[in-house]
């Protein structure tokens, strides 16, 4: 059920990526920018990790900088990491890579066994992710250059889309995205989102008791309710979905809820947060 909405949202954002420069070609400047920073009318929305780095690298705090990050932080506080699961253009491509990989595994090797992830366990994955984020930010501060921008997958993708629409060419950075997708296809699906993506790691920090999350009504079940454990198998981040809905890795994608209902599960998993 959520899958349809999610795909619609992802495709919408993906097309917006091309639509913004197209509108600008026709001199409509109501919405401008790339996914590093977008302006809709007078509302500025920027990737908070990018702003955080600019603060760190320049050593100065301005109202413009802070207000730009405000909207994304507000969205994360309210709805969790919906940017990652529901909007990020790279996540859509990673979904595609994972789907292709599953198909290949099924057709060629007759294997439906769940993937073994490169860094198993949510704690370890989070440690790698935040080590990468801290390292990048410290390097940004030390050298005065926002290094993490060079590896921001959604930012790069949308910049490339912009260059493609405006100048009918692409630049070198698309190779980075291609390399990531190839690795996801051949080595481990969704390793970038799980282990490195600085934007996702930073957005996950804005989490409050009222933030939207996946959970059950009863307090924390210790074991999966059904034998199949379909919710955990469906989780692209390798979480035990029935109890780790509050984990920093969770993107609120809703796959676990879909899996639960699809397999005729007890349907205990649902979104909760500020609504309930």
């Amino acid at each position: 059920m959520y899958r349809t909405y999610r795909r619609a949202a992802q495709l919408l954002v993906f097309s917006v990526m091309f639509l913004i420069p197209l509108l600008n070609l026709y001199e409509i400047y109501a919405i401008t920018g790339t996914f590093y920073a977008v302006n809709i009318g007078r509302l500025g929305i920027a990737d908070p990790v990018v702003i955080f780095q600019a603060l760190f690298a320049s050593g100065s705090l301005t109202a413009a900088l802070l207000s730009a990050a405000l909207f994304a932080v507000f969205l994360a506080l309210l709805l969790g990491r919906v940017w990652c699961g529901w909007m990020c253009p790279y996540h859509l491509l990673a979904d595609g890579a994972a789907w292709t990989r599953a198909r290949v595994r099924h057709k060629l090797f007759r294997s439906n066994a769940p993937e073994s992830l490169v860094v198993p366990g949510s704690l370890k994955a989070n440690m790698v992710r935040y080590a990468f984020l801290v390292l990048g930010t410290v390097a940004a501060g030390a050298f005065g250059i926002p290094f993490l921008n060079y590896v921001s997958a959604p930012g790069i993708l949308s910049t490339e889309a912009m260059i493609f629409v405006k100048e009918r060419s692409v630049s070198l950075e698309l190779g980075f995205i291609a390399a990531l997708l190839l690795l996801e296809l051949c080595v481990s699906p969704r390793f970038w989102c799980r282990l490195f993506c600085p934007t996702g790691a930073f957005l996950a920090l804005f989490r409050m008791p009222f933030t939207l999350r996946v959970g059950t009504d009863t307090a924390g079940p210790k074991a999966p309710c059904c034998k199949g454990n379909y919710c955990s198998a469906a989780c692209p981040m390798g979480l035990s979905a029935f109890r780790e809905g509050n984990n920093l890795l969770c993107t609120n994608c809703g796959r676990c809820i879909d899996a639960c209902t699809a397999h005729g599960g007890p349907g205990r998993l649902h979104f909760k947060g500020f609504t309930s």
Partner: peptide, 12 residues
Amino acid sequence: MALCIRCNRCLE
């Protein structure tokens, strides 16, 4: 170099 976030809005 520190402040520019490479959003390319100026270019756009």
